[in-house]
């Protein structure tokens, strides 16, 4: 080692074996939107058929939200089966998310998103295509541009560098955004109830004809 000095005692004192929260844990609260695009509403009967097209919403204390795929998503749960090969931002005939351009502090010109708005389409080695939906209402600030060059990020680090998009909710809706989502506990119990059912990934993966 070139530099092998040690920290001063004051600093050594601070460094204990205590738990250090990660960046996501420090600044964000997370919520889940499951069974997209027809999302399952909290408090109603559990869906008869879960499609596991789930997203996780990380909400920063400044109300900006990061959309990632959820751990229950087939791309994560069955990463072996679905190997990501590419990502397309052209979500419908007319709608291309790569056209999204925001300007200024207020982020003018952003695409407006609803919970069921598609963000991107992920294609896998086996030919299956998975649409990722937004899960919340807000303006699209950006689709993670690094996913286009390196789609493998999506499976390698889906919670951090492999995020899908950044969405800014309306200021007045900012506080309520988490209310419509499942919290960690609700999400886990939802997953337990699903595991008893027959899992049909066919809905999530739109296999081209």
């Amino acid at each position: 080692m070139a530099d092998d000095t040690s920290l001063c005692s004051e600093e050594n004192q601070k460094i204990t074996t205590e738990y250090y929260p990660s960046v996501v844990e420090r600044y964000f609260t997370s919520g889940y939107q499951v069974n997209l695009p027809k999302c399952w509403k909290k408090g109603t009967d559990e869906p008869s058929e879960a499609n596991f097209n789930d997203v996780r919403i990380l909400r920063h204390s400044n109300k900006i939200c990061i959309v990632t795929i959820a751990p229950s998503h087939p791309l994560i749960k069955q990463a072996e089966t679905y190997k990501v090969t590419g990502i397309s931002l052209k979500v419908t005939e007319k709608l291309d998310r790569s056209q999204n351009q925001v300007h200024g502090k207020r982020k003018r010109g952003a695409h407006w998103l609803n919970p069921s708005s598609p963000l991107c389409i992920i294609s896998c080695e086996d030919g299956s295509r998975h649409t990722v939906y937004c899960g919340i209402r807000g303006s699209l600030i950006e689709i993670n541009p690094r996913l286009l060059n390196d789609p493998s990020l999506l499976q390698k680090s889906y919670e951090t560098n492999g995020y899908i998009a950044i969405v800014m909710p309306k200021l007045i809706e900012g506080n309520q955004i988490m209310d419509s989502l499942l919290n960690e506990e609700e999400y886990q119990s939802y997953l337990r109830s699903c595991s008893k059912q027959t899992i049909n990934f066919g809905i999530a993966a739109d296999i081209p004809s």
């Binding site: 920290l7 600030i141 800014m168």
Partner: peptide, 22 residues
């Protein structure tokens, strides 16, 4: 991001040096 425009800014890191370990 809630109070600044979205942009890529180029900044220079002049120097980094390691000052110690635990």
């Amino acid at each position: 991001l809630h109070r600044r425009p979205l942009a890529v800014r180029i900044r220079t890191i002049h120097k980094i040096s390691l000052r110690g370990f635990d």
